[in-house]
Amino acid sequence: MSYFSPCLSSLPSGMRKYYGGMADRLLIICVLSFSLLSCAGETVELKNAVTAYNKMLTEALAKPDENIMEYFTSNNELSRIGAYILRLETEKKLMVSELLELQFLSTSTSEEGKTATVNTSERWTYHYVDNKTREKITEEEAIAYENTYHLLKESGHWVVDRIDVTEK
């Protein structure tokens, strides 16, 4: 049976079959198009969330102020960043980093749409500066990662909850 108009039943059986089949096909095309569009939107949102996270992370480490990450992370991840900044502060240094390349390898969302993972390939450079004078205290280092970001949907937007880091 078609989900389309019930008036199909008033048509002769041959026509009903023809139009019914056409309606089914239309329905499938609509559902597929809708799913594809929804998926595309979700993928863009996930990519935006990871891009924004990395951008804000650079600033959080350079300021240093983990609170600016609040909108982009879960409490777990925020605590992790806070702990890292604290460690840097005890060593009287700050990290100045630059994301040179962020490539998205794959994205996936759970069935309920509440969790997602994003796989990336990243190239960074970083160095440390004195936390008072901001004078460079180490040489610039380059590093490449393949990361898996685990994201949660909180208050209607994606936040980073955890990152599995693999150095290349």
Partner: peptide, 15 residues
């Protein structure tokens, strides 16, 4: 040289 500039508009090395 003697000029102060910013490399980007991202807060990385704020002065």
């Amino acid at each position: 040289g003697t000029r102060y500039e910013t490399k980007s508009l991202q807060v990385r090395n704020p002065f």
